[in-house]
Amino acid sequence: MLDFLIKYYLIRPQFRVLFIWIGVLALSGLKEFVFIPDSYFSDSTNFFNIYIVKYNWIWTVWLVTPYAFITSFVYSCDHWKRGSVATGLRWLFLTGLFYFWTIVFDGISNLTGLCFDSARNPLLDITDKQSCMKLAGTNRWRSFEISNQAFTLTLSALVIASELQIQKYWKYISTHAAETSPCLAIGSKSLIRLKARHKTTKTTINYLFIFCSILSIFWEFSLICTCLYSHGFITKALGAAFGILSWMVAYLELFRNRSFPIYPGYGHLKSLITHTPAKENRNGVDKKKE
Rank of each mutant, 00 (worst) to 15 (best):
L2H: 12
L2P: 05
L5Y: 15
K7G: 00
L10S: 15
R12H: 12
L18F: 10
F19V: 10
W21M: 07
I22Y: 14
G23F: 04
L27E: 06
L30C: 11
K31M: 02
E32A: 13
F41A: 12
T45I: 12
T45N: 14
N49S: 02
I50L: 07
W57R: 06
T65V: 10
A68N: 08
F69M: 12
I70M: 11
T71W: 00
F73I: 05
F73L: 11
F73H: 04
F73T: 05
Y75P: 05
Y75H: 04
S76L: 09
D78I: 03
R82S: 11
S84E: 02
S84P: 03
A86R: 10
T87M: 14
R90I: 00
W91D: 00
W91I: 02
G96E: 07
L97R: 01
L97Y: 03
F98E: 00
F98W: 09
I103Y: 05
V104T: 03
F105C: 00
F105T: 02
F105D: 00
G107I: 07
D117M: 03
D117I: 03
L123W: 09
I126P: 07
D128F: 11
S131T: 15
M133F: 12
K134V: 08
A136Q: 14
T138A: 09
R140E: 09
W141R: 05
W141C: 08
S143A: 15
E145K: 13
I146P: 01
N148S: 08
Q149N: 14
T154N: 01
L158R: 04
L164W: 01
Q165M: 03
Y169E: 02
Y169A: 02
K171N: 11
T175M: 03
H176P: 02
A177N: 05
A178H: 13
A178Q: 10
A178Y: 10
T180I: 08
C183P: 00
A185Y: 13
I186F: 11
K189M: 15
S190Y: 08
L191C: 11
L194V: 00
K195A: 10
K195G: 04
A196L: 05
K202G: 09
T204N: 04
T204Q: 07
F211I: 11
S213L: 05
S216Q: 13
F218G: 06
F221V: 08
S222I: 09
L223N: 05
C225P: 12
L228S: 01
Y229S: 06
Y229T: 12
A237D: 02
L238P: 01
L238R: 00
A241T: 04
E253W: 05
F260D: 09
Y263G: 07
Y263Q: 10
P264H: 01
G265I: 08
S271P: 04
H275D: 08
H275L: 15
T276G: 06
A278L: 14
E280Y: 14
N281C: 08
D286E: 13
D286S: 14
K287A: 14
K289R: 13
E290G: 06
